[in-house]
């Protein structure tokens, strides 16, 4: 008996996690998937209705606003964070005095919750008392900056706050990548007569391709999950103009008792993540094999 225990101890240790994983991850995904094919509202109701919830979802204008917002948010958030992160990393890599202090300053927003970030930026962007007032006090009396309450612009405030929070992290990733680049490569490029700019562009950046790749995956992941930032900064408003899919899902599943529809939107989100993740994992695995 004791021998048996000893022999199977590793499996026994793993067992609780295995159980939790099978039930609470894969089981629950399956459950949500099944639910999305039923007409459940307040409570789960196992009556099969085919793709009805998905049809309702894609006929819902609010869902389209959320998807469009996600596209805008994803593109801008990722592009600006990458550009800014890379720029700051390259500058910080020039043997800067007090590099540690500056790096710490760039990165601290990452330690804060999106709710706090949202609360802070909601105040900074306050129409009337926020940035607008700074410029008016400086003498620009007609200056207007009220994106927070403008339907077409509210999503950009989310981009601003999210970039503020996450770009330092991208900087840290790039900096770690730059530090891993062999100094001799840069020196060789310089001996060949390349300028600093050109040696970065042609020699260093191509080596950093994997870092770019991971950064994009992580930023995509943050963007798709950005539920709390929207909730705190705009509340999805004005109206529902700055909703993201995650906010849509929450509203319909928990506030409007539309379980089936909420489940369908969650499944679409999952497939969105998988569409990014699978090529990434595939290329990672292939790289490791070669």
């Amino acid at each position: 008996m004791l021998n048996f225990l000893e022999k199977h101890l590793p499996k026994i240790v793993i067992a609780p996690t295995t159980l939790a994983m099978i039930v609470c991850m894969y089981g629950f995904i399956l459950w949500t998937g099944l639910l999305s094919f039923t007409k459940s509202r307040m409570m789960p109701q196992w009556e099969y209705v085919g793709f009805e919830q998905y049809i309702r979802l894609f006929e819902n204008p609010r869902w389209h606003v959320a998807l469009d917002n996600l596209a805008v948010f994803l593109i801008l958030f990722i592009a600006i964070s990458l550009a800014l992160g890379l720029l700051l990393a390259i500058f910080l890599d020039q043997k800067i005095r007090n590099e540690g202090v500056i790096r710490t300053i760039y990165l601290y927003p990452m330690a804060i919750s999106f709710i706090v970030t949202g609360t802070a930026w909601k105040w900074i962007l306050n129409p009337g008392l926020g940035i607008e007032k700074i410029f008016r006090d400086m003498g620009f009396l007609d200056f207007e900056f009220r994106w927070l309450v403008e339907q077409d612009m509210a999503i950009y405030t989310i981009v601003i706050a999210a970039v503020w929070q996450s770009s330092g992290f991208v900087m840290a990733m790039f900096l770690a990548g730059l530090r891993g680049v062999d100094d001799n490569l840069v020196k060789a490029a310089k001996i060949d007569g390349a300028s600093t700019f050109r040696s970065y562009w042609h020699v260093i950046l191509p080596i950093m391709r994997p870092v770019f790749f991971s950064a994009v995956v992580i930023l995509t992941h943050i963007a798709i999950k950005s539920f709390d930032l929207v909730q705190a900064l705009t509340g999805g408003g004005p109206g529902y103009s700055s909703d993201l899919p995650a906010n849509f899902m929450y509203t319909f599943a928990f506030n409007r008792a539309q379980m089936g529809l909420g489940a369908a939107s969650a499944m679409v989100m999952l497939f969105g993540v998988l569409a990014v993740l699978i090529p990434y994992l595939y290329s990672e695995l292939r790289e490791r094999e070669t």
């Binding site: 996690t17 994983m21 609470c24 991850m25 894969y26 089981g27 629950f28 995904i29 459950w31 949500t32 639910l35 992941h221 798709i224 999950k225 539920f227 899919p245 995650a246 899902m249 929450y250 599943a253 928990f254 379980m259 909420g262 489940a263 939107s265 969650a266 499944m267 989100m269 999952l270 969105g272 993540v273 993740l277």
Partner: peptide, 17 residues
């Protein structure tokens, strides 16, 4: 299989949980 759990959007498990 566990690693996959680092990536799933939690919306997909909210209701059953």
């Amino acid at each position: 299989a566990l690693l996959f759990g680092c990536f799933i959007p939690f919306q997909v498990i909210l209701l059953p949980m």
